[in-house]
Amino acid sequence: MSNAEQAETVRRSRPVRVAEAIKDWVVEKGLMPGDRLPGEAELIAHFGMSKGTIREAMRLLQAQGLVVTKTGPGGGSFVGEVSTDRARALLANYFYFRNVSIDDIYQLRVALEPEVAASLAGRLDAGQIAQLEAIMADYAQPAANAEEERAQHVASLRFHACLAEFSENAMLSFFIGFMARILTDLTVYKRLYAQPNEALWKQGRAHQLHLIAALKAGDSEGAREVMRDHMQMARRMMEDQEAVVMKRFIAE
């Protein structure tokens, strides 16, 4: 690499280094989403960089969703927060080229979801139980046609995402919700919705009813076993129906 090329590499990476330094500074100061960041002149003085470098670093942070800029009275730069939907969309797009399979997804679901269920046994309040039961009301009866069959499967995935949101483990909640989104938005079921499957509906609903009973009773091992059986059933169903993950970019 020539001296000119080396200099260009250093010049181009400087805004990236400054952006990382600003993130470190935000953490050190304990700033939270919505807190105001110093003005441009103060950032220039603090980091000892040029106006152009500071502006490019701030643009990088805005692109990441970590900085929000507002105009007008009371405007300026503020600490941003990456939304869950955006983070999941970015992650889905990352996996676009990774050839993720249904089996990959269910390997994780079988490992993670029973543990979430066990951790929540006896810890959900009446309002949270009511949320789960309200979702189940969307498939209280067997589907009458293929359109209803798909809607019921989507509602069932919403049940799992909702349950994960109750977990105090943010990473578990995020990844289980992410897998539910992938299965809702990016899965093509070659024969799954060709006709209603009442036996499948009955078994899946029974699992969820037993799960809610175990959660209410504080039966951690029972909740774990029911969820494990439910996940294994869903895995077999996907394999039987030749489900595949469709390649499509997700909008942020």
Rank of each mutant, 00 (worst) to 15 (best):
A117K: 00
I44Y: 01
R98W: 08
L66V: 04
Y106H: 09
Y106P: 00
I102K: 02
G75H: 09
L112S: 11
A63R: 15
K51N: 11
Q107G: 15
A117M: 03
L90S: 14
R36H: 10
E42Y: 07
D104E: 01
E40K: 13
E115P: 03
E81M: 07
G127I: 08
Q62A: 11
Q131T: 07
T53H: 03
L132E: 04
F78G: 06
L66F: 08
L90H: 13
V68P: 07
L108V: 09
G34N: 00
D85S: 13
E133V: 09
G52I: 01
T84F: 12
L90M: 14
P33M: 00
A41C: 02
G75I: 00
V27T: 05
Y96A: 05
F95H: 11
E81T: 09
G127E: 13
A121L: 04
G80D: 13
L91M: 15
S119V: 08
Q131H: 08
G52P: 03
V27I: 05
V82Q: 11
N99D: 15
K70G: 02
R59M: 10
F47T: 01
F97E: 14
V67G: 13
G65L: 02
A117N: 01
A89Q: 11
G74K: 06
I102D: 09
S101H: 09
A45H: 14
V116R: 07
R59W: 08
D103C: 07
A57V: 04
Q128I: 00
L112I: 12
F97P: 04
A41D: 11
A41N: 03
L132G: 06
E133F: 09
L43Y: 01
T53S: 04
R88P: 06
L66M: 07
L132F: 02
G48H: 11
L120F: 04
L91T: 15
L66I: 08
R88Y: 00
A92V: 02
N99A: 14
I44A: 02
G122M: 02
T69W: 11
G34V: 07
G122V: 01
A126H: 12
A134D: 12
A87Q: 12
G39Y: 05
E28Y: 03
A117F: 07
R123H: 13
A63I: 10
I105Q: 02
T71C: 05
E56L: 13
R123N: 13
T53I: 10
G80T: 11
E115A: 04
L90K: 14
R123G: 10
L66D: 05
W25H: 08
